[in-house]
Design a protein around this nucleic acid. Structure first.
Lengths: 114, 114
DNA sequence: GAGGCATACGTAGGATTCCTAGTTATCAAG
DNA sequence: CTTGATAACTAGGAATCCTACGTATGCCTC
């Protein structure tokens, strides 16, 4: 019984923070932004998004506030200062990580167009 | 109680397969190769390596065989055909994944050398 | 006014993965 | 004989992501 590919592989928190770097968004909008910007590669179920946002809020990396728009309640999140610092560190870590992986994957960095 | 950073984030199997792409190696040698090629970024405990190798062998992606060298028993692994195919697919998936992440991380793809 | 769809939030529990912390054993160097 | 490098193993815990639900509103169509 194989689990469906967990495409995010531990980088979800970074991606959520990155999505909020442009400005505050509510949960559903974050999900949509992630889907659109990634060309549907990151089309995450809400059961992935919402618990992750709660994690980030508990960790003090984002701050949420309730509002109501058109009769629907929304929880809008924005980055905190620690969140901004974390994102900055995550970006650096990602560079290092992806470089290390690329070098381990071997000399062929790009499939030749021939 | 924060867990120590899980630097591999779901890509361990791919890295192990990639290490075997150059030719057969035994477990300990794989661990060392991973450490050296990555500049010590991937210095994994044996409790990570060995179970992962067992997983890959159970999945039929690598094949192991016992031998004894200098009185020490070794289990040497080599890629199977399915393993080679998997690695090839993993490389492609990695390209897509890392591109998607890069685009979500924003416009600054590389820190300027200025 | 009933049904369906998009919006919007949530939780419970399972599967998987990686790490910590331990064990066993050989060989070489001191 | 003790330490350190080599070489393999396992048990159990913590974290993460997914599946599968549940709740509710507004809008559009029938």
């Amino acid at each position: 019984m194989r689990h469906q590919a967990q495409v995010l592989k531990g980088h979800l928190d970074m991606l959520l923070l990155a999505t909020l770097a442009d400005g505050p968004r509510h949960g559903y909008a974050i999900k949509e932004a992630l889907r659109e910007v990634s060309g549907s590669r990151f089309d995450l179920p809400t059961g992935t998004i919402y618990p992750a946002l709660h994690r980030l809020e508990d960790a003090g990396l984002i701050r949420g506030s309730w509002s109501t728009v058109d009769g629907r309640r929304r929880r809008t999140y924005e980055l905190t200062s620690p969140g901004r610092r974390r994102l900055s560190g995550d970006r650096k870590a990602w560079q290092e990580f992806s470089c290390a992986v690329a070098s381990l994957l071997g000399e062929e960095p790009w499939p030749a167009t021939t």
